[in-house]
Design a protein around this nucleic acid. Structure first.
Lengths: 224, 224
DNA sequence: TCCAACATGTAACCGGTTACATGATTCA
DNA sequence: TGAATCATGTAACCGGTTACATGTTGGA
């Protein structure tokens, strides 16, 4: 649960209400960590009962009162502690790869549009990053906020690099699939069954060692 | 929920028990889609009540009976339908990026070990991929299973490319941080507060348009 | 007139993980 | 002797999303 710590992080900049924090999330870290109001409100309440933040009510007429949260010394300690502790690798869950994995179960032409759809989404996203990056660069050049903006830039770079790599993979994959003959595809179920049985018994067994190194190797190294 | 469809995908190769399916997951798609037995069993039961799979009990002495599941025609239709429908972009959640985002809240030296830890994990992972890829190539060359293995190879390529991009970003980031002067760091809370207030009001407002394009642009295009 | 913004929340659900329960067999 | 494999499950929890509830103000 990093939402707690993300909230502490923003409150370390200064006091905010839950509503404000949602907006801050949306224009800053939303590309790698979304947060809903319905989750922010109870989380702030929890942080308060734990003594990591303090709340002050600002009475308002004709509107619900604002509940302004500030970080406490305990909260600041907790935040700095968390920030300097290595993060557990957040595990991947990519439905697209499942579709590719079972690509041999459908006709050749049918998996490519799925990839092309994702490719066009990624191109849009990269264009958006480019626009946002322009703003950041422009602003940083004219203010004394280089440090803050640098870290912002760094997380955007991560998003860009990730999107680019993903896009390249999709483009390569489409090319590979297009080069392939139609022959191996739409194998009738019975033969697929036989193939798989053999595949399972022979290949999977042999691959276990390599796979374990690749897929499990980093898991035990995780840290809170 | 792609677990349903992943299970259908493997059952389309041939009948399996839940226990077997877990093992198949572990040596094949675990690098991008983990599955626990405690989730597989009830999911299979659900698929059965929906008529997408059928179950046959194999009585065993001294062991719990094996429940062997097979895909039905309805299940096969559902699978092929899902496979050829574009995937919703599974949204990113990277705790490491939160730590980097708030990197200006800690002393310069303190965020680098966090990055280095992740870097070494990624190098391990890449070594594992290399080993597994070797096995796949070797085996594919000697069997008639090129098609199946190709799709396997493709998902591994995705993992490799992703890991490489992530690693490169980390290495670049470490270099950038090391090049920076100590000056901007450990800004005392009060000044940070002022900085952030200004930053929030001016920068965040201006960035909104760009950010929205980048971070929200692809969301409405999602499809189940 | 209608929608967005302000401002707070609760409740139901959902996919997934961790822990718990049972118990024989085989191999080191 | 003790761990791993075979084989099935349940229950509690957890982080997060979606839907629901309320009500004003100000601008297009």
């Amino acid at each position: 649960m990093s939402l707690r710590h993300a909230l502490l992080g923003f409150l370390n900049y200064g006091p905010h209400t839950g509503y404000e924090l949602k907006k801050v999330f949306d224009v800053s870290v939303a590309h790698f960590w979304n947060a809903e109001l319905s989750q922010i409100y109870p989380t702030l309440k929890n942080l308060e009962t734990e003594g990591l933040v303090e709340m002050e009510v600002e009475v308002q007429a004709d509107r619900p009162n604002r509940k302004v949260y500030s970080i406490t010394e305990d909260g600041r300690r907790e935040l700095l502690d968390w920030l300097t502790t290595p993060a557990e690798p957040d595990q991947v869950r990519e439905a697209l790869l499942i579709k590719v994995w079972f690509g041999s179960s459908v006709k050749k032409g049918e998996i490519i549009p799925v990839l092309e759809k994702r490719a066009s989404e990624l191109r849009e996203r990269l264009a958006g990053y480019a626009a946002a990056a322009g703003f950041v660069r422009e602003y940083t050049a004219r203010t004394e906020m280089q440090s803050e903006a640098l870290f912002w830039q760094l997380t955007m770079d991560a998003g860009i690099k990730h999107s680019q790599a993903h896009l390249e993979w999709i483009e390569d994959t489409i090319k590979t699939l297009e080069k392939m003959g139609e022959s191996q595809f739409s194998t009738p179920p019975e033969s697929l069954h036989k193939m798989h049985t053999k595949w399972r018994v022979e290949t999977l067994e042999k691959l276990k060692a390599g796979a374990e190194l690749a897929f499990r190797g980093t898991e035990p190294t995780t840290t809170g």
